[in-house]
């Protein structure tokens, strides 16, 4: 029989974070933490030990009193897309992201935490999370002080680029900033087919304040090794009165200028040339800004 992880000789299913931390700490070699398991479609770890996370109590998704959306790391993408609070959060940006993510059977396996932790450049949710000022609740299995999760902001330490989790970090929750609960947001994915991996993804959020744009966040993924924000574009849009764009055309809008400012250092992608991706990025940033404001009828 073919095996998913041929070297595995041990399988554990912890149901508390304490047990998980103990198992990780006492493991010989690096165990594979199994969430949705779909990363096994891309690479097979050479590990002896599989630790199945699916019995841990981190599967729920809820809106807190501060309007933060707290998403358990083991929530599947399918469950997230069916969740009413997630659907309405920040103009439906999460629904736009999950709509574009893999296929129906895969969405029933892929977890929110796994999508974040896998660290693949094509993962869609981290880009939306960056635009939503997400925080991660993390356990550090290397610490002796066991089950006290720490909150870290995404990206860490005020940087603009997403930092991959370290080996010892286990995420229990992703917390989306309540400030953006009733804000405007949009997500765009560019790929060859509806179920293909992203070539480029763009997420834009802002808080409408008297028709102007505040706390603008623009994040991109797919064409960069890890998702990152575009601070120049954000600065250009900050404080602009978006209602002024009503009736304007795509070609002469401020959003077009914002798109033109979008620039990043590209990773290699055999599917599309660098020039092509740079051009498409500019258009996608423009379009995603327009989609987030909802002001322009004619965006072509």
């Amino acid at each position: 029989m073919a095996k998913l992880i041929p070297t595995a000789t041990r399988y554990d299913r912890p149901d508390t974070p304490e047990t998980l931390q103990r198992l990780i700490k006492n493991a010989t070699g690096k165990p594979f933490l199994l969430a949705g398991g779909t990363s096994l479609g891309f690479s097979r770890p050479k590990t002896e030990h599989i630790i199945d996370l699916n019995r841990l109590p981190f599967r729920e998704c809820r809106l807190t009193a501060l309007h933060d959306l707290e998403i358990g790391a083991l929530t599947t993408i399918g469950d997230l897309e069916r969740h009413n609070d997630a659907k309405s959060f920040c103009g439906g940006i999460l629904t736009q992201a999950t709509d574009a993510l893999a296929s129906t059977p895969l969405r029933n396996l892929i977890t929110v935490g796994g999508n974040l932790a896998a660290g693949y450049p094509w993962c869609d949710l981290p880009v939306a999370f960056l635009a939503l000022n997400a925080r991660l609740r993390c356990f550090d299995s290397a610490q002796t002080d066991c089950v006290s999760p720490k909150e870290i902001s995404l990206p860490h330490d005020g940087q603009t680029t997403f930092k991959k989790l370290t080996e010892n970090q286990f995420v229990s929750h992703i917390v989306l900033d309540g400030k953006y609960a009733n804000a405007r947001g949009a997500f765009t994915k560019f790929s060859r087919t509806s179920t293909d991996l992203a070539i480029i993804t763009v997420a834009v959020t802002f808080i409408p304040d008297e028709n102007s744009m505040r706390s603008v966040r623009v994040a991109v993924g797919g064409l960069v090794p890890v998702p990152q924000r575009l601070p120049e574009v954000e600065m250009m849009l900050e404080g602009q009165t978006f209602k002024n764009f009503e009736g304007q055309t795509f070609e002469n809008s401020l959003f077009q200028e914002a798109g033109a400012a979008a620039d990043v250092i590209l990773r290699k992608d055999p599917r599309a040339s660098d020039d092509y991706r740079r051009n498409v990025l500019k258009t996608l940033v423009t379009r995603t800004c327009i989609k987030a404001t909802g002001v322009m009828a004619n965006e072509n």
Binding site: L34, G36, G37, T38, G41, G78, L106, L109
Partner: peptide, 17 residues
């Protein structure tokens, strides 16, 4: 799997206990 379609080629059998 518990009523939802999933790709069984990516599921370790031990997971469906």
């Amino acid at each position: 799997l518990d009523g939802r379609p999933v790709n069984s080629c990516l599921v370790p059998a031990a997971r469906v206990e």
